[in-house]
Write a protein that binds this DNA or RNA. Structure first.
Lengths: 168, 168
DNA sequence: GGTGAAATCCAATTCTA
DNA sequence: TAGAATTGGATTTCACC
């Protein structure tokens, strides 16, 4: 099994804190009908399990001067070299996400740039030298929306049906 | 000007809180050499300006049962209808991001699914019925990295060179 | 796993400058 | 805008269940 079983309270906690990282844990505690210490311990457990990977304030890229967002599909000259390329990509501040994908591209990245001109510059000056055979750029001219994945709610009965064992 | 001028302290605050939403403001205050009230007021200002759009705990999608991540480029039957399609897409829990893009596609979305089978299901059962002419799917089989965009640091001298006005 | 109390620390407001 | 002071809460730990 690739993920730990979360009970209903864990799921409720995650859904409460996921889009408000500053919510007081005592408020979460009241919602869940337990003590603040219990929430504290469970959140700690979720962090230790790697389910919670951190917290962040969401900053609007446009408002700090990044007007252009783009996705770039990358073909490498020597695909065997991908590890080194990924390390170099990680050092470029404008590259915020990087994926290994099936089929089409060797790598697929998300980048921000101050404007379209800087994007072209970024591609020519910083990306091409890494050993790209070719790349395809998809410029977003507007983000329609962004939201978070809901934490699925597993009802207790469903867990029992799946054969939840006592020795967990 | 599309973005507000941030002074060095605003930038420092953003860089401090951006990847730790739970950091005590008093700690930020100590780092910045000002009082807690000053940080409180500045963060409030940044929220009011829309520079800070909220906060969140980062939850590992794999750990809550979403093993497949994919990007899908969408061609619509009637592109004039995009507004309605976007609204429908927003209702689908698995669709977490949606962009209007230049060129190639009418829409470009990011989705999560429990597995590859569910992804196919999602495309056939939920996406196709919205009126897609065609779609191209790019499955990520691993995220190499993800990081945040750094808040650019504008030195005071640079701002003066740019002609910062007193009446701001 | 959870509780409750204690000690420490913080958030948020108000007032002053 | 910043600082100081205040106060009501929040965080965290720990002994106990």
């Amino acid at each position: 099994m690739t993920y730990h079983e979360l009970d209903e309270m864990d799921q409720k906690i995650l859904n409460l804190i996921a889009d408000n990282a500053r919510i007081p844990f005592l408020e979460v505690a009241r919602e869940c009908g337990v003590s603040g210490a219990a929430i504290h311990q469970r959140v700690q457990k979720l962090i230790n399990l790697g389910i919670i990977k951190g917290s962040e304030f969401i900053i609007d890229p446009e408002k700090i001067g990044y007007e252009t967002c783009a996705y770039i599909g990358i073909y490498l000259n020597s695909p065997s070299n991908h590890q080194a390329v990924v390390e170099e990509l990680q050092k470029i501040p404008e590259v915020v996400e990087c994926y290994y994908t099936t089929g089409e591209y060797d790598l697929f990245i998300k980048v921000y740039a101050r404007n379209n001109h800087d994007l072209l510059n970024l591609i020519h000056e910083k990306l091409q030298p890494l050993g790209l055979a070719r790349s395809e750029t998809l410029v977003s001219f507007k983000q329609a929306f962004r939201k978070r994945l809901p934490v699925p709610i597993t009802k207790k009965e469903e867990k029992e049906e799946k054969g939840e064992e006592k020795e967990n």
